[in-house]
Amino acid sequence: MAVAVSRDLTVQVLEDVNAVKLTDRQQALRAAIQRGEPKCLGVSQVMLGLMVMSYSIPLHFTEITEVIRMGVPWWSGLMFVTVGVVAIILDKHCTMKTLQVCLMVSVLSTVLSVVAVIIYSVDMSKHPVAPCVKTLRGSCSNKHYATRLSRGVKSSLLLFTLAQTAISAVLCFLLFRQRRNFGQYSSLTHDTPSTPQALIPPDQN
């Protein structure tokens, strides 16, 4: 806090340098984050999460495999929606605390996306499409069509999850870079006034 005393004993409380610096850096942080467009990334993640959950519904009517038993589309889709909502909130309320929360959720989403990709890949390799066995009507068996549908849906879910992995990784990189650049200002507070104030001593006559 800077104080200036004039000749008439009027005390002038000047602007706090740290408070001004904090305000400037917060504005710079907001501008830097908005350049990364977290809102667009967040909307993309929400849409991917909803698509993963909706596309997985047909799997419940085909052969039940490890993907359905472990509920991979549901917990991965919910995680995608969650990190997308947090990214949208970060775009509107840009603070270091929100940035750190978004970074942690994005890291968790990236890890879970990789786990989901591994589960999808293993499941598809363990459950290939059943060969076409001709029936009396001349068409393939129901098992062939069921496994073919299941593999097609899982392939779509795998592509969505790979896209989510890439988006989460990009968002993690952007947020980590911004936290490293602006993290040193998170401990500053607005305890001091940001505008000059005049303190006039009492009249002792």
Rank of each mutant, 00 (worst) to 15 (best):
P196M: 06
T135C: 03
P38H: 06
P128A: 14
L9I: 04
L14K: 15
N18M: 07
I118D: 11
M70C: 07
S141V: 05
M53D: 04
R35G: 07
V86E: 03
V101W: 01
Q100I: 02
K97V: 15
K154C: 08
V67T: 15
R35P: 00
V20P: 00
S156H: 06
E63R: 15
V85Y: 10
L157A: 05
L159T: 10
W74F: 09
L108W: 00
L149P: 11
S125Q: 14
R35H: 03
C40K: 14
C94E: 01
L199S: 04
P196R: 07
Q178W: 00
P196W: 02
L175F: 14
G71V: 03
N18S: 13
C140M: 04
G138E: 07
R179D: 04
T147D: 11
V111A: 01
R148G: 14
L158W: 14
S139H: 07
V101T: 10
K154W: 03
G183K: 02
K154P: 02
I68S: 05
L159A: 13
Y55D: 15
I119Y: 10
F182G: 05
D203W: 13
M1Q: 09
S187I: 09
T192Q: 08
L48W: 01
H127D: 00
K143Y: 01
A4E: 14
V129S: 06
I68T: 09
V43S: 14
A146V: 03
V129D: 06
R69E: 12
A28S: 13
R30C: 00
L108I: 02
T192L: 05
Q204F: 10
I88T: 14
A19W: 03
R151W: 02
F61C: 07
S113E: 01
S194Y: 00
E15S: 10
V133L: 13
S187K: 06
V72P: 04
K134P: 14
Q34I: 10
V101R: 04
V20H: 06
L174V: 05
V20L: 09
I89S: 03
L171M: 08
P196S: 10
G42L: 07
L157P: 12
T192S: 04
R25T: 12
T62W: 03
S150F: 04
V133D: 10
L136T: 15
R35A: 13
L29R: 04
Q164N: 12
P202Q: 08
M96C: 11
I200W: 06
S56K: 09
P131K: 04
L157V: 05
I200A: 08
R177K: 11
E63F: 12
G77P: 09
Y55Q: 12
S125R: 14
R137H: 12
A166H: 00
L22W: 11
S121Q: 13
C132Y: 11
H60F: 15
R137N: 11
K126N: 09
T23F: 04
M79P: 00
M124G: 03
M51N: 09
A163T: 13
D203Y: 14
T23D: 13
T98P: 03
L157M: 11
G71Y: 09
L103V: 03
L41N: 05
S76D: 05
A166K: 00
T62N: 07
P131Q: 03
V86R: 00
R25A: 14
